[in-house]
Design a protein around this nucleic acid. Structure first.
Length: 234
DNA sequence: GCGACAG
DNA sequence: ATCTTGTCGC
């Protein structure tokens, strides 16, 4: 079983998250203008049944043809407890290492942008795991979550109004904004596939703006979950 | 105390 | 994250 994160450790995490949050960049970055991107990376973690053993996978795909050109899988032992809001602290180091290996081994495949399984600024500190990773590695990232991370105190909730909007998404590319009570747009619910009934929740991770993020996610989507973060068969 | 909470 | 059936489709 995972170790319990002590309150001391959580305080540490909070401080680090505050510092990282100040460094998140959500502006337009010409380097990742959609038509210039040729390599997109993806990061995901899959657990072995009921254990704390997990496989961290980093893949790099070409755009627009979505072919896998690089894959790095590493079996690891997860020791940190999962606490909603602090997802990045479980996995960021492993992802960081995977990116370092890529930089050393195959620099030519280093992606212009990474898709991360989780949220970017759609987060109560505006620093979800995608942003966290983007800042530590100093690379553009996009957060893609399969479920809405609710923030009741800011009005981001899966209520009837939300469900109503979701039911009106019919075609690939249909989307609606995820707005706080202060009218801050933190992310976009995007239908990534014509067959899907549920959207994915896209938010800026780092060094990118929301429009670009959504466009890239759509270009990478065949199934509901964008190709770079889908499970790659062993 | 309870519930709700990306993966 | 994981457990789960059959069904449809690239």
């Amino acid at each position: 079983m995972s170790e319990v994160a002590s309150e001391e450790l959580q305080d540490c995490w909070k401080k680090e998250q505050d510092e990282l949050a100040m460094r998140v960049n959500t502006s337009y970055n010409e380097d990742i203008a959609v038509n210039r991107i040729s390599l997109v990376g993806g990061l995901d973690i899959s657990f072995v049944k009921g254990t704390d053993d997990a496989c961290i996978t980093l893949v790099v795909l070409t755009l627009p043809d979505l072919k896998v050109v690089y894959e790095d899988s590493q079996l690891i032992k997860m020791v940190a407890l999962y606490i909603p809001g602090y997802l990045a602290f479980r996995e960021a180091d492993f992802f960081h290492q995977a990116l370092q290996r890529l930089r050393v081994k195959h620099k030519e495949f280093f992606p212009q942008v990474m898709l991360v399984d989780g949220n970017g600024v759609l987060h109560f500190k505006r620093c979800g795991s995608a942003s966290h990773l983007g800042v530590i590695c100093d690379i553009p990232t996009i957060g893609v979550a399969k479920n809405l991370y609710q923030m009741p105190e800011e009005g981001i909730v899966r209520n009837d109004e939300h469900k109503q909007k979701v039911s009106q998404l019919n075609n690939k590319g249909d989307q609606f904004e995820l707005k706080t009570n202060n009218q801050d747009v933190l992310g976009m619910a995007v239908l990534s596939n014509n067959q899907a009934t549920n959207p994915v929740y896209v938010s800026v991770g780092h060094k990118c703006n929301l429009e670009t993020a959504v466009e890239i996610v759509l270009k990478c989507s065949v199934a509901r979950v964008p190709e770079p973060i889908r499970q790659v068969p062993p």
